[in-house]
Amino acid sequence: MTRHKTDPDMQNDRDEFTAISAVLTGYSKAELHATGCGEDYWHQFRQVTPEPILHEFLSHAVALEKTFANDPEVGASEVRRIYLSSDRLGPLARSLIQLWYLGQWVPLSQDWCRKYGVSRFNVSKIISTRAYKEGLVWDAIGAHPVGAKPQGYGAWAMEPPRRRV
């Protein structure tokens, strides 16, 4: 695991990680905390990301959060400009989004690793049983995790919840 010298308890990094996760997933920070998976995801993300890139990745969090609060459209275009179109940060951002939605780490490509650094933790895996159950995808599509969180007899006959657009 990479050691981070600048912030021994890493609380700031942790907060920035939650903030940028909220920006990238479209869920609030409270909703991300509510999954109970944040700590594990932060751990996984740190393990696969070389330190300088991690710092670059997190450095935009606070500003982007504000931009989003003021004007979501400007925020979205900033996310595209800074993250999604970047050869370096784009693949990381996409894997992070999938991590929150699926509870699963989707490995960075060999190309990316050759350029920016290899981690032995960069392998495909479901982070935990809770990560599977708490994937944002279930809420986003108005469904529930198959085989977990039962809804009661006959629930299949009812309209799915429409909480998210």
Binding site: G36, K149, P150, G154
Partner: peptide, 16 residues
């Protein structure tokens, strides 16, 4: 009944 299950889920979410 599904509301009862959802309350459990939501309560657990709040407590985290």
């Amino acid at each position: 009944v599904p509301v009862m299950f959802s309350l459990k889920d939501q309560a657990q979410h709040l407590m985290r």
